[in-house]
Amino acid sequence: MDVIQDYIEKCREIVTAIEDQKSEIRVAATWFAETILAGRMVHVFGSGHSRIMAEEMWPRYGSFPGFNPIVELSLTFHNLVVGANGQRQAMFLENVSGLAARILRNFDLSAQDTVLIISSSGCNVVPIEMAACFREQGIRVVALVTRKHAEQSISKRPDGKKLTDFADLVLDSGAPLGDAMVKIPGLETPVSPGSTVGGAVMINALKAEVARLLTEAGHPPTVLSGASTVGAERSAQLFEKAYDEHAHRLARLYQSVGESNPNGNV
């Protein structure tokens, strides 16, 4: 049994599943481009391993300003696994009601913003409440879930609502129920998840379409580019310019914090 080939073939199926969503990807990218052209930010949030997708969007080579990765270390720091700052605590905290609102209390949100929330199951409390908080502010919510997994999972919220219930648009990573894709003879449970592969393909398809729309609108993005591509001097210039733009956009998210929320509510 060639388990390597098995995993590769299943990844090809994931890519096909994402290709079938091109119309939905274009809609999401249009919303994101509108936000960036308005001088605002596309918020990107994921708890647990979904944090990977937030960082895949920005900042890294081939990416550009306009995205605000909301990465909470208490929900995503897995390196120690056990002990202080361990995985058990992170898994507990991503189901604490009210945490999403406290996170968003730090930002001056606008209806011009948009948000991409990533959660494979779409059933943990913090990502769901994050979507609900954004929706309350009139902000469009795009959810990236693993549809087969999300449909069969049970919400941790008492009312049973899932992330998809608060999304204006739902994208699918294309991974299977349970995420792990390869069955090994003699091993009880499958290994090698697929949602990260599907998520990365989806994120970069979105990124490419947003870049096209911004460029066609006369505002080509400042892309983080390596010296091997544009030369050392130009690479350094692009990095500095992109980081400065990110800082200026981020400043707008802080400049009026609390002024319209005197009671500290989102």
Rank of each mutant, 00 (worst) to 15 (best):
R51D: 13
R51Q: 15
I52W: 11
A54N: 13
A54W: 09
E55P: 10
M57Q: 00
M57Y: 01
P59S: 12
P59R: 12
R60T: 06
G62V: 00
S63N: 06
S63M: 05
S63D: 02
F64H: 04
P65Q: 02
I70H: 05
V71I: 09
E72G: 06
L73V: 08
L75N: 06
L75V: 04
L75A: 09
F77E: 12
F77H: 15
N79K: 15
L80F: 08
V81H: 14
V81S: 09
V82S: 05
V82L: 15
N85L: 08
Q87H: 11
R88T: 11
M91P: 05
M91C: 15
M91V: 08
F92T: 14
L93Q: 07
E94W: 01
E94D: 01
N95S: 13
G98W: 09
G98Q: 14
G98I: 14
G98P: 05
L99V: 13
A101V: 01
R102D: 13
R105D: 08
R105Y: 12
S110C: 09
A111I: 04
A111F: 07
Q112T: 11
D113G: 04
T114A: 15
I117A: 03
I118L: 09
I118R: 07
S119Y: 07
S121E: 07
G122D: 06
V126Q: 01
V126M: 01
P127N: 01
I128Y: 02
I128G: 00
M130H: 03
M130C: 01
A132Q: 03
F134G: 01
E136N: 00
Q137T: 02
G138N: 08
G138P: 04
R140T: 06
V142L: 08
V142H: 04
A143S: 09
L144E: 08
L144R: 11
Q152Y: 06
Q152F: 13
Q152K: 14
I154C: 14
K156I: 10
K156H: 12
R157V: 08
P158C: 03
K162P: 09
L163D: 05
L163I: 09
D165V: 05
D165I: 14
F166K: 03
D168Q: 15
D168H: 14
V170L: 10
V170F: 07
S173D: 10
G174C: 00
D179E: 02
P185S: 02
G186N: 05
G186Q: 06
P190T: 04
